[in-house]
């Protein structure tokens, strides 16, 4: 396992000191050491996207990213998306369009879509599908997720934050 050491992870603007082994994943550090459980564990294999977080603005899979790699980087999780008690326009669009059912994949979708809209505020449907294809959802059939992202992209719900 190797020696554990204390890492400082900057998550949503706050510094968390967490004790990690060299093989501790960022997902484990977030969920089990910082108690930020909004990021979900679906497969532990980088296959489902439920654990997606932003690292320096880029959407990454925290279950196949080591915690040590995240040191010195800026991590944004689902807990850092809504502004206080207020939903982001993207989150509001997901709620209004019924773009979630069980909700387990939703944080990952929000992170991936947040990255997408930050890069391209007005993506076409095909780009939305391509960019979110790494996030699996078993409940919704994706239709309403696409519609929610489109609504934000077309300005119906205001811009992404």
């Amino acid at each position: 396992m190797g020696a554990k050491r204390i890492l400082t992870l900057n998550v949503n603007g706050d510094d968390y000191e967490v004790v990690c082994a060299p093989n501790t994943t960022l997902l484990e550090a977030l969920r089990e050491k910082a108690f930020l459980t909004g990021t979900k564990r679906g497969c532990d294999l980088g296959a489902c996207g439920a654990c997606t977080v932003l690292m320096d603005g880029e959407a990454i899979l925290s279950c196949i990213t080591l915690a040590v790699e995240a040191e010195g980087r800026s991590i944004r999780t689902i807990e850092g998306v809504s502004d206080g008690g207020e939903l982001s326009p993207l989150q509001q669009a997901f709620v209004d369009h019924g773009a979630l059912q069980c909700g387990f994949c939703s944080p990952g979708f929000i992170m991936s879509a947040t990255e997408l809209l930050a890069e391209n505020p007005h993506p076409e449907r095909a780009e939305i599908q391509r960019r979110l294809a790494g996030n699996l959802c078993r409940c919704t059939g994706y239709v309403k997720i696409v519609e929610a992202v489109e609504a934000v992209a077309q300005g119906a719900e205001g811009g992404a934050r």
Binding site: S82, Q91, G103, F104, S106
Partner: peptide, 23 residues
Amino acid sequence: QRVPMHDAAAKITGQAQYTDDLV
């Protein structure tokens, strides 16, 4: 009516608690 799920906000903000989230 097309009412959003009552727990939609909890789910979309990551506050909703699934079994593995409980400690």
